[in-house]
Nucleic acid binder design. Structure first.
Length: 507
RNA sequence: GGCUUGGUAGCUCAGUGGUAGAGCAGUCGGCUGUUAACCGAUUGGUCAUAGGUUCGAAUCCUAUCCUGGCCGCCA
């Protein structure tokens, strides 16, 4: 039996056996410092020449990044270390050596393509480790929330015979000779199970065949879809708010080390602990256009300020590069030169990002200012809109024509439907989409026809309105989008172990 | 699908008409506690591919392929 790094505080001063991999190694004449990882954490292990056998020290000299080994040693308190402890090694045994490990300790020194090709190894990096641990915590928080609130998990099928909402492109497969499609949503099935079980949720993979090559899309992702009988839109929004708060607070409580590793500003996450603003679509449009301010903040003005900040940033960074280049040319020691050269590369990268911003922001402002009442928010519109809030914001009562057929009409205003989107702050955009469902048989049938959907494929769904139709609501959460927001990650490809997206099927 | 940035050593990049460069990784040596360790030395490149302009092309032009980013479609 061996111990795990995350439990070492319980073993202070005692001997432990650890099994893991060398994350990084530093070699001195009489001391070798191994940063060991075992999946539960990272810890520095010191191998001193006079504390281990000659054979063991010789074996340790040959270790390189990602070599696998067992080691025995004493847990020693050391304030300099990240976890507060280190291991003074007394014995070690190598399982497998490793040579020329391709991924650097600082993974930022690699391009996206290179890392994607090495995903099977990239997952061993500290940053990826932290993301996957947060992802797991989010999954646990989701199950905990529903399981302790009377919900039953009811899986929806992955093979389906029809396009559920009739819009998105699906992956077609062969089901004993008939065409079958990989599920793009479990919602319609969740409605059926909710009317059987009361309150349910699905938790499963979802597939979309759109050729969307963006930071916010995957071809295969995980979706959670609760559905509740006897629930209206207001209750749905309450649930979305409580659910989101529960997840974020549990991650903050249990995954602090991982969030710190990711450099996540936790105070921003703590902003969820306030009432989420609830804004009708029509009001959101006015905010987006800059016609209405929120807490003294104007959406358009914030973007214009961003442009000025970006320009200023480019000037400052350009000046700093010139200064550092002059320092290098003036003839300095190698260490100083190297330091400055590394800084210059980082600065150039930052300038490239700011220039990208300068190319985009004017387009975003134009899009926001000229936004037409009745159309759907684009990605940049969501970013601009959410900048005036510091908590997630719920936009509700949407135009019927841009939402799905199953959403319930707003009483007295059939042009609007009782849908709600939860938009995360800081430009992370839509995380949750939900609605109160249409309960009236005749209206639902009319809408299916209006959307040109094949009635025969929806007969079973319409049955739900024939036999004890009740008000019911639900929502869908994209798991990876939640991970992305909580971890503050730019691209969804880092939020799932093996991302499947347009142009990427391996590894 | 549209717009756009790039392709130079295993990795990340500089070089923009005149002899192919740096850091990291690798290899060798040094160093009594290192934190992306440090110090010294060293290996490594048909400058994406094809064609063109030129006395001379990594650099200019054309085409093709690949890549990063933004938008659209959406969770």
């Amino acid at each position: 039996m061996h111990q795990f790094i995350e439990d070492l505080a319980q073993h202070e001063g005692k001997e432990v056996t650890l099994k893991g991999w060398v994350y990084n190694a530093r070699f001195g004449k009489a001391n070798i410092f191994l940063e060991l990882r075992d999946g539960t954490g990272f810890i520095q292990c010191v191998i001193s020449q006079d504390m281990v056998s000659e054979e063991a020290f010789e074996a340790a000299k040959k270790l390189a990044r990602e070599a696998a080994l067992k080691l025995v040693g004493i847990v020693v308190k050391d304030e300099r270390q990240m976890g507060g402890f280190e291991i003074q090694v007394s014995a070690l045994e190598v399982y497998g050596y490793s040579k020329d490990y391709p991924i650097k300790v600082n993974e930022n020194e690699h391009g996206a393509r290179f890392l994607a090709d090495k995903r099977h190894l990239w997952l061993r990096s500290k940053r990826q480790w932290a993301i996957m641990r947060v992802r797991n915590e989010i999954i646990m928080a989701i199950h905990e929330f529903f399981q302790t609130n009377g919900f039953v998990q009811m899986d929806s099928p992955i093979f389906t015979g029809n396009a559920c909402e009739g819009t998105t492109e699906l992956f077609e497969t062969d089901f004993f000779g008939d065409p079958a499609y990989l599920s793009q949503s479990g919602q319609l099935y969740a409605e059926a199970t909710a009317l059987a079980m009361g309150r349910v949720y699905t938790f499963g993979p979802t597939f979309r065949a759109e050729k969307s090559d963006t930071p916010r899309h995957l071809s295969e992702f995980w979706m959670i879809e609760p559905e509740m009988a006897f629930f209206d839109l207001d209750m749905d929004m309450d649930l979305i708010e409580n659910f989101t708060k529960h997840i974020v607070n549990r991650v903050i409580k249990n995954k602090r080390v991982e969030l710190d590793t990711l450099g996540r500003d936790i105070s921003k996450l703590e902003n969820v602990n306030q009432k989420f603003p609830r804004v009708p679509y029509s009001e959101a449009v006015k905010i987006l256009r800059g016609e209405v301010e929120v807490n003294g903040k104007n959406a358009i003005a914030i973007q214009e300020q961003d442009i000025e900040d970006a320009k200023k940033g480019i000037e400052e960074k350009t000046a700093e590069i010139a200064e550092r280049e002059a320092t290098i040319k003036s003839g300095v020691k190698k260490g100083v030169r190297k330091f400055n050269e590394a800084k210059i590369i980082v600065l150039r990268g930052e300038i490239a990002e700011l220039e990208e911003k300068l190319r985009n922001l004017p387009k975003w402002i134009t899009s926001a200012k000229n936004f037409e009442m009745g159309s759907d928010f684009g990605n940049s519109d969501e970013t601009v809109l959410t900048r005036v809030f510091d908590a997630p914001v719920m936009v509700y009562n949407w135009p019927a024509k841009i939402k799905s057929f199953y959403m319930k009409e707003v009483d007295g205003n059939p042009d609007l439907v009782k849908g709600v989107d939860l938009l995360a702050p800081d430009g992370f955009g839509e995380i949750v989409g939900g609605s109160e469902r249409e309960t009236d048989l005749d209206i639902l049938v009319r809408k299916i026809k209006e959307h040109d959907l094949p009635m025969e494929a929806f007969e079973w769904y319409v049955d739900l309105r024939r036999f004890g139709s009740v008000p019911h609501s639900g929502f869908g959460l994209g798991l990876e989008r939640m991970v992305r927001w909580i971890c503050d990650i730019h691209h969804l490809r880092e939020t799932i172990p093996f991302p499947r997206r347009y142009g990427r099927l391996l590894p």
